[in-house]
Simulated assay, not measured.
Amino acid sequence: MKKPDRYWLPGLVLTLGLYVLVSLSVSETVDFFFLVMLGTLVFCVTLFYRLFPGSYFTTIALANFLSVYACLFIFFVEANFGAAADWVVRVSFALPILTFMAGVWLRRGAIHRLVNHEVDTRIHYAPRVFLWLLPVMVVGLATFLVPHQGFSAQTVGLLLLASMGLIAVTVMAVCRDVTAFLLETGLLFEDFFARASALMAPTLAFFTYYSFVVIVFAGVYRLVGRIIPGDHFMLAGEPRTISFMESLYFSIITLSTVGYGDLVPASLLVRAIASLQIVIGVWLIIFGFSEVLRYTREHPAQGRRG
């Protein structure tokens, strides 16, 4: 018996994982708002799979689109509509998403034709396609006038519903263009993952050499503190001998030239060793990029989607 086709599973898992991450980040607890956001995503992703089977990269793009929307929505609510009731915030959040999906459902025939022709004819979008963002931006900017007017909580809630209602109408009207953008983004995701898979071998080689340098210098920093008397490091402004895990941490931030400043070298010897590691780190990055580019030129077929 033929096994069921589960092509959709990776896309669904990545989509839900991304949105759960954003939802848990913006919600302090797993409350009803979290369930509303998660349930809305499950509905949207499920409907997209039913309408466009096989396009899980497009649903990943949809998940990212919804995550960006969630971040912007939380920002505007906290900045301008903090007095709105919880139920108003939840309804306002779901309103544009549900109307967008309603528009996709109503125009599924036109969108299906777009999907069927995308393989043979790649779409190059003109700037006019993104003109629908202008009214959305105008509504968003206008909301900054709300906190300065001294409105009541009920009025603020009504203004939030009205603002999101205008955005919902706009998004529903241009749902075909938005879906076309998601489709193109999904194809770009597919190209990216294909190229990333082709570059796995040189990437792992670079990481192996990188980790080798990190561990060697971490051992050197640790041995300097044990063999040569004196305080060679300062941690939070206090001289002390560091542990191996602290030396490993210092080796990583030194090789990456980050230098947070919480753990710093205090002796001339350690400063000289750290300077040498920084030079090696810069050389390693240049060498790594050069090898990746050389590998891409020598294996051009593996860098393209079949």
Rank of each mutant, 00 (worst) to 15 (best):
D5F: 09
D5H: 11
D5Q: 11
R6T: 15
Y7G: 15
Y7H: 15
W8G: 03
P10T: 10
L12M: 10
L14I: 14
T15D: 14
V20G: 00
T29L: 03
F34D: 04
L38H: 01
V42P: 00
V42Y: 02
T46E: 09
T46R: 08
L47V: 15
L47W: 13
F48G: 11
F48C: 10
F52W: 07
F52A: 10
P53I: 10
I60Q: 09
I60M: 14
A61F: 12
L62K: 04
N64I: 15
L66N: 08
V68P: 00
L72D: 00
F75H: 06
N80K: 01
F81I: 06
F81S: 02
F81A: 04
F81Q: 02
W87T: 14
V91P: 00
F93P: 00
V104A: 05
W105V: 14
R107P: 01
R108Y: 07
G109A: 13
G109D: 14
I111G: 01
H112S: 12
L114I: 05
H117G: 12
E118K: 05
V119D: 06
T121C: 09
I123A: 08
I123Q: 06
Y125R: 14
L131W: 14
W132R: 09
L133D: 01
L134I: 14
V139E: 02
T143Q: 01
L145V: 12
L145R: 06
P147I: 10
Q149L: 15
G150T: 12
S152G: 15
L160Q: 04
G165M: 07
A168T: 02
V169K: 00
M172P: 00
A173P: 01
D177W: 15
V178C: 02
V178P: 01
F181L: 14
L183D: 02
L187Q: 13
E190M: 12
F192N: 06
R195M: 07
R195I: 07
S197Y: 08
L204Y: 09
F207Y: 07
V213H: 05
V213L: 13
V214S: 01
I215L: 12
V220F: 05
V224E: 02
V224Q: 01
F244L: 15
Y249F: 14
I253Y: 07
T257H: 08
V258R: 04
G261M: 08
D262A: 14
P265V: 13
A266T: 08
S267H: 05
L268F: 12
V270G: 01
V270M: 06
V279K: 03
I280V: 15
G281M: 10
V282D: 03
V282L: 13
I285A: 09
F289N: 02
R294H: 05
R294C: 02
H299P: 05
Q302S: 11
G303C: 09
R304F: 13
R305Y: 08
